[in-house]
Nucleic acid binder design. Structure first.
Length: 218
DNA sequence: ACCCAGGTGGCCC
DNA sequence: GGGCCACATGGG
């Protein structure tokens, strides 16, 4: 059995369907992806709630808002020296590029949209792919720290290079939107719950209830 | 008082 | 092109 498939099945069996991304609209996915960087989802949820309450969870209003106002709402997610400008800059780009219409923005070949996303300040490979996969409906495999950590520990691959890991999955796992969405979500859920960055000590390096059984990871 | 979080961009070599 | 580092709040 193809390893990437069996790992997927084990994660699914262990955690169940995740139904990601947790957002109401594609625009919320984008805002969430930009705010998510290096913080906990709980804080992103608060920030999104703040923006929504202020009527700023919409392309044009956010594009027109003052940085200080945006900062006030997203401060809880940290890195507020950069996130507000990136958020607003991205919205302005959406307007310039597609009149703020996401359907129109995403209506191009995947690679073209991906290049456009990567050209935006604050949008690296993971953020771009998350947006493509969860907001744009483009089937790209999202790689994140958990994907790399877990994949390496269970011997799926040895690299820690984003593109290599992405190719690993895209060339083995069936190319399917729902499957990609679910797989990435499962990696994150498993990682948050079990796969710690560093072993705390030699005696209890990992949690024992990992879906991959004993061994090194968890 | 640490360590970590679903990264990214800027430096330095 | 790879290897650090700052960015900043909130929670364990």
């Amino acid at each position: 059995m193809e390893p990437s498939v069996s790992v997927y099945r084990r994660l699914l069996g262990r955690h169940g369907p995740q139904h990601w991304w947790p957002a109401e609209t594609p625009f919320e996915v984008i805002v969430g992806a930009l705010l998510m960087q290096q913080t906990a989802w709980r804080n992103v949820a608060k920030a999104i709630g703040n923006l929504k309450a202020a009527g700023l969870l919409e392309v044009k209003s956010l594009a027109a808002a003052r940085l200080g106002i945006i900062r006030k709402h997203v401060r809880v997610t940290g890195l507020y020296g950069t996130k507000p400008a990136r958020l607003r800059g991205f919205c302005r780009h959406l307007i310039a590029r597609a009149d703020g219409d996401l359907g129109r923005y995403f209506a191009r070949p995947t690679e073209e949209v991906r290049e456009d996303l990567l050209a935006q300040d604050g949008v690296g490979p993971e953020t771009a792919d998350s947006i493509l996969l969860y907001a744009g409906g483009h089937p790209v495999f999202v790689v994140d720290a958990y994907t790399i950590r877990i994949g390496r520990r269970i011997g799926l691959f040895a690299t820690d290079d984003y593109n290599e890991v992405q190719r690993f999955f895209e060339s083995r796992f069936p190319k399917d939107l729902a499957g990609y969405q679910e797989y990435h979500a499962l990696f994150v859920t498993h990682g948050k719950e079990i796969c710690r960055p560093k072993p705390r000590c030699a005696i209890c390096p990992v949690r024992p209830d990992c879906a991959f059984g004993r061994g090194r990871d968890g």
